[in-house]
């Protein structure tokens, strides 16, 4: 009985994990080419990555900190940040919609919109 309860709990938690991973995988497949950069809820810039011919850097300096955003043909990434964990930098290049790059301490979100559901 006790063992059964443990197994039941483990199965339930494992099922949630699998569902979560599946959802994460599906979310990561979003399309779109328009990168939207927001800081503290305010839209800072909007770039159509399919129109970018040459890579360039966009420095973002706000009250919360500094980030350097690299804009390339078809991709966007954060290459520099002065936050302690630098998770936004290790998130790498964003090429499609669904999952945004987030720098929580600097309130920065980079998201790709448009594509199939372009309004």
């Amino acid at each position: 009985m006790k063992e059964k309860r443990n197994i039941l709990w483990l199965c339930a938690l494992a099922a949630v994990c699998l569902l979560g991973l599946a959802a994460w995988g599906l979310l990561g497949r979003g399309g779109g080419t328009v990168a939207v950069i927001t800081v503290d809820g305010q839209e800072l810039a909007r770039v159509d990555l399919s129109q970018v011919r040459e890579s360039y850097d966009l420095p973002v300096d706000t009250a919360w900190g500094h980030n350097t955003i690299r804009i390339e043909p078809g991709a966007i990434s954060v290459t520099e940040a002065d936050c302690p964990d630098k998770i936004c930098v290790s998130q790498g290049r964003l090429t499609g919609g669904g999952i945004p790059i987030v720098c929580m301490p600097h309130r920065l979100v980079i998201q790709i919109e448009g594509g199939d559901i372009d309004a």
Binding site: L13, V16, C17, L19, G20, L21, A23, W24, L27, T38, D40, G41, G98, I99, P100, V102, M104, R107, L108, V109, Q111
Partner: peptide, 24 residues
């Protein structure tokens, strides 16, 4: 809290993976 701060609903995409990591 993150949603309140950045006011960008896109961050909710992290919900599923955060649930998984929370369980593990």
């Amino acid at each position: 809290a993150c949603l309140l701060v950045v006011r960008t609903p896109g961050v909710l995409a992290y919900g599923p993976i955060l649930a998984v990591s929370g369980i593990i």
